[in-house]
Design a binder for these strands. Structure first.
Lengths: 357, 357
DNA sequence: GTGAAAGCGCTAACAA
DNA sequence: TTGTTAGCGCTTTCAC
């Protein structure tokens, strides 16, 4: 049994010392060879690389980061929606993209899911425990304390989104939500819709404010008054979408189009429309956020709006790249990128039922 | 500038040595006091704890795990759907639950998002780089090589779900998918539905097989033939749900009820129903998987089926607890838990339009 | 081009 | 009850 263990250890739990002993060179040389330092003869390097690979040697990350002072990990603090205790579904897509960048660059991804009241503590801990080299900030809010906190902690970070009224002194990547919602609204106005409703998330979230601004701008740009009675903001849940859509559909002068700000809201809205016996795309147009990729693969036209699953994924990858860049070269300037939202308006966004087109 | 940095370091980058020097005791004593060892006088412990807290001292995790040999981190390897390059949306909920358990127990959560072909490499790396103490296995498949691999690597693990035909020699937690789908189908049969369709995920995924088995058992239990023409399995995407539902609805003898196996499929199905001008719950019943919590908070009846978002969250928490337990006491037996699915059938699952009820 | 030795920040025998 | 000391596995001067 003990022999078996020893054998097994010999095969798998190889460390730098073991390897250097086996090769008859010093640990230093092995380390240098494997880390691509130039002062190793090509012959030795080749021998070492071959052995490392033959014995399946991988450096112990904990030892490595203790020695280098870099943890080679990036932290993500995921806020749990307060009322709802659930994670925003776009998060999975963001992570998929970020994960790809981390894998490529040799970073680990550390996740911490916390309630909002524990958020600051989570960042402080990541900092004082030295568990990450940088963090991605998700879901910036009005008066968000995080950029200041992270600067105080000297923790490199990139914000996915922007803090309202404040986008000077930190690195961020954001979709142009205002522009996207303006374009979508204009598209519906062009089709002859006038009674257009917006079902949005709470405006403590930056993107929700920007989306409403874009929506309003479309009306103002046409010299039309904004129908404030058709705007709503709430929890981005199926239930809110369902109930609010029911309310809208029961209106004497109900909207002919609805712009929906999130996927969960959209599910509820769809259900309300279907239960009311209305046809999407005929009786009522719905512009929403969709699983674009799966439609695109089928060559379909999309019932689509703003940050689609695949663009969130791309954003995740880019945020990760920006942060890694920042961690490696802290002296470089702050990258700030505003992305054009993918916007393909199709099938479910038909004409207004009584438009003159 | 250098002075500022020193000041700052003094305030935040406190380490064990600094703290012990400041207190005039040895590092050992500080370590012992902070880690709750009994052989420290209460007076010293109190002083030390107070100072730690005053200077915001947190042990460096990398150093700690190098010294202890435990990394205090759990790994999750998230498979990216091959065709689709997206993360399954239930994943966010699972993570939320798991994250809570990790936070409570002082573990970090390490995520690695990989394409299926790189999956084994990801596990091997986690093992050889010593970055985690254990892993959660997601989405077990037919002939899944992971349990064997992880056993070979002596890496503690818990499977969320089960590997088909094989549930003896590893720890797992699964929803009783078979039973849940049988109950849901029976419920529809009781309401007078006969033409019931199942839109399922690919049967390489264990839960999909079990769900179909449950569905079929309900028919068999009533002495009814199973309508195989109404069963479909495909990618769990909105697009597949949409197109397949369109096909079903165009049938001369179209189903009066549809059981849908995932949230993305359901969105597509809803859209097809709405575009066809049919009413959910009146013309056609849909049994699906939903954002239960947001409805429950409103005291609504649920249009609900099997692993709801909140039960996935609970499963995540329990899997994490099982794994932590296993990491701490490897000699204990393998925990295996089969959970009853939450199942509240409501509003959208009305009677068959021409049933005799 | 290679190696010896110190040290990253912590824990855990072993002594006292 | 407290302190001394020797690592954990790696990187990185510095000397050869």
């Amino acid at each position: 049994m003990l022999r078996l263990k020893a054998l097994w250890e010999a095969k798998f739990k190889m460390n730098l010392r073991d390897l250097s002993l086996k090769l008859g060179v010093s640990q230093t040389t092995v380390s240098r060879a494997l880390n691509g330092y130039p002062e190793v003869s090509e012959a030795t390097r080749a021998r070492i690389v071959a052995a490392a690979d033959r014995y399946n040697y991988q450096p112990n990350t904990r030892a490595k980061s203790l020695a280098t002072g870099r943890s080679m990990a990036i932290g993500h603090v995921i806020p749990l929606s307060a009322e709802h205790e659930m994670v925003n579904p776009v998060f999975g897509d963001f992570i998929a993209g970020a994960g790809e960048a981390y894998a490529r660059e040799g970073y680990d991804m550390l996740l911490s899911v916390v309630r909002q009241q524990d958020e600051q503590k989570a960042y402080r801990e990541m900092s004082s425990k030295r568990s990450v080299d940088g963090v991605i900030v998700h879901g910036p809010r009005l008066d968000d304390p995080r950029p200041a906190l992270l600067n105080e902690l000297s923790m490199p970070f990139v914000v996915h989104g922007r803090v309202p009224e404040r986008d000077e002194d930190y690195a961020w990547l954001d979709m142009d939500n205002r522009r996207a919602f303006r374009r979508a609204t204009e598209f519906l106005l062009d089709l002859g819709h006038i009674r257009i409703s917006l079902i949005n998330g709470h405006e403590t979230m930056d993107f929700a404010r920007r989306r409403r601004n874009g929506f309003n701008e479309a009306f103002e740009g046409r010299g039309l008054g904004v129908a404030f009675d058709l705007q709503a903001a709430g929890e981005m849940t199926e239930s809110f979408g369902f109930h609010h859509a029911q309310r809208l559909l029961a209106l004497p002068n109900r909207p002919t189009a609805i712009i929906v700000s999130s996927i969960l809201l959209a599910i509820g809205v769809q259900r309300a429309i279907s239960e009311a016996g209305l046809r999407m795309g005929t009786d009522i147009s719905v512009v929403t956020h969709d699983d674009a990729l799966s439609y695109l693969r089928n060559g379909d036209e999309l019932p689509l709006f703003t940050a689609t699953r695949s663009s969130v994924r791309d954003a995740g990858m880019r945020c990760a790249e920006m942060l890694i860049e920042r961690v490696k070269n802290p002296e470089n300037g702050l990258a700030q990128e505003l992305w054009e939202a993918e916007l393909i308006l199709g099938q479910s966004t038909g004409r207004a039922p009584n438009s003159s087109f």
